[in-house]
């Protein structure tokens, strides 16, 4: 019971602000609503025994990406964008597609028999992630740094082009 209640609360914390994110006419409010969504997802990670990923989710999504998005809104939009139309002409079509997609996805996930296995997750999550990263996933680890390097260089070039 307790777990189900926690799950339902976390889902609401995730999904209701997400609705504001995609519908609000005020861009700063939309960006600010990302924060509870990300924190709700953090809660879901915790219930899934992924403590380390939860910490990273707060640090990167709520603490870094949201700040970057807020920067760009404040620097481009000149504020809220309240006086401008925020939705394009295909709003109804988009809603239909999204709704259809939701129905299909949920029908699919409930119909499939997933190969669920019982078992417990490693107790010290950060250590387990570290071990996996440095042994089996060493290549992923190193390639990540290349991706970061490339995106840093690319973004700097794009953002500073005209100076």
């Amino acid at each position: 019971m307790g777990k189900l209640a926690v799950f339902i609360i976390l889902s609401c914390v995730t999904l209701i602000p997400a609705v504001i994110v995609v519908t609000s006419r005020n861009m700063v409010r939309a960006a600010l609503s990302l924060v509870p969504t990300f924190l709700g997802v953090t809660g879901l990670y915790v219930t899934l025994d992924a403590e380390f990923v939860a910490g990273i989710q707060v640090l990167i999504y709520a603490g870094a990406i949201t700040v970057l998005i807020l920067f760009v809104i404040m620097l481009t939009e000149g504020g809220t964008g309240l006086r401008v139309r925020q939705m394009n002409a295909q709003t109804k079509l988009g809603a239909l597609v999204a709704f259809g997609m939701a129905v299909v996805l949920i029908a699919f996930t409930t119909a499939t028999r997933w190969p669920v296995k019982a078992g417990t997750m490693p107790r010290y999550n950060a250590a387990a992630v570290g071990n996996a990263f440095l042994t089996s996933y060493a290549l992923v680890f190193e390639v990540t740094s290349l991706v970061l390097l490339v995106s840093l260089i690319g973004a700097i070039i794009i953002a500073r082009r005209e100076e």
Binding site: V21, V22, Q86, M87, N88, G94, A98, F99, M101
Partner: peptide
């Protein structure tokens, strides 16, 4: 799907 809706309809 909420994200998809945002991507499809936002200007």
């Amino acid at each position: 799907c909420l994200g998809l809706f945002g991507v499809l309809t936002r200007r």
